[in-house]
Design a protein around this nucleic acid. Structure first.
Lengths: 185, 185
DNA sequence: TGATCCATGTAAGCCGTTACATGATTGG
DNA sequence: CCAATCATGTAACGGCTTACATGGATCA
């Protein structure tokens, strides 16, 4: 195990493999659709090299499963060293959470944007929140107490967000530019 | 104006300059400490080249102010083209908000981590939220209705988050490993 | 029949961080 | 007196996305 600075994607892979064996393909799906999306999202171009490297470093093992007609599956499994590495990393720094909102930037410029744009942003945000809440409600209770805890955390935060949006969207729309033909001064 | 795909950092610069003239140094500060941190954070290495490029593209103008003893200040100002470019970009896609949480990953692995680690993560998260709420409470009402709207949005979401943390931190801690000497197998 | 899913991987390139280089002034 | 603030920039390096390459199976 030469180098020891796990990249975020490598950490993601270890976290997912901690719960069970997976292929690179499955890891990517879980990172995009599953609950791990709140930690990181990764594409194939990041996952496959990360996995290769984790294998070289002894953090995971590979078992190849040949299939007819398809490229043979590589099923990765975490090793004891991999578990330790992940847990050590999690114990380490309480790195801050990140929230990046394009929506909030639109809101900040509400007074300079046409009403239709602000309305669309509001609508999109509302729909996304509704969908994510529904998704979290599904997984809550299915996968043990820790997942339940974080699912409810998400639900709580998003419900508050949605409630604010619904209560005050009219105020934001009122700031926006009237939907006339062209906003020439 | 040769190319037209503004990078996130360029967009950040335009957004900040939209409200008034600034130097690169000031933009960076505002992106890290100010309210723009909810949109993007950028370092000098990203901001200075972005500004140079915006100037080349006619989105901003530069006015140099010589000072004794210091490198001369370059004060950037947005142009009409720059305003239009930003507003067009904001109107364009309702790109999704991003939430990335290291804390949630720790929570997910609560059952595998020592209690002290989970407690520290909880504590850090709680403190950060408290500080950010206080900060938002300060700026609310000071900078016009749009900023007020987003500040209150943030306050609402973070209060909900904090309330959940306080109500259910005991549950998460209960899942964690007892703080014994060494967690051998 | 055509899109989507399964399944792996590589290469080019962008975008951004980190560290370096420089140096006076101000505040504790 | 030392640290932080002001102030600009460059160079190296890293990590990730995107697009490419390949192709059978399944489903509508």
């Amino acid at each position: 195990m030469p180098n020891d600075t796990l990249s975020p994607v490598a950490m993601l892979c270890l976290a997912i493999l901690f719960r069970g064996d997976r292929t690179g393909y499955e890891i990517r799906k879980e990172s995009v659709d599953g609950d791990y999306k709140y930690f990181a999202e990764a594409s194939y171009g990041a996952i496959y090299p990360a996995l290769a490297r984790l294998a070289a470093d002894g953090h995971v093992t590979v078992r190849e499963e040949h299939q007819s007609g398809r490229p043979s599956k590589k099923i990765y499994a975490i090793t004891a060293a991999g578990r330790t590495a992940l847990l050590d990393l999690l114990a380490e720094p309480p790195a801050p959470d990140i929230f990046r909102s394009r929506f909030l930037l639109v809101a900040k410029f509400a007074a300079e944007l046409p009403r239709s744009v602000v309305a669309a942003a509001l609508e999109t945000r509302r729909r996304t929140l509704t969908e994510e809440i529904a998704h979290l409600e599904e997984i809550a209770g299915d996968e043990g107490p820790a997942v339940d805890w974080i699912a409810n955390y998400g639900i709580t935060c998003m419900r508050a967000s949605l409630a604010y949006l619904e209560a005050r969207e009219a105020d934001l729309l009122a700031l926006a530019q009237a939907p006339v033909a062209n906003a020439a001064e």
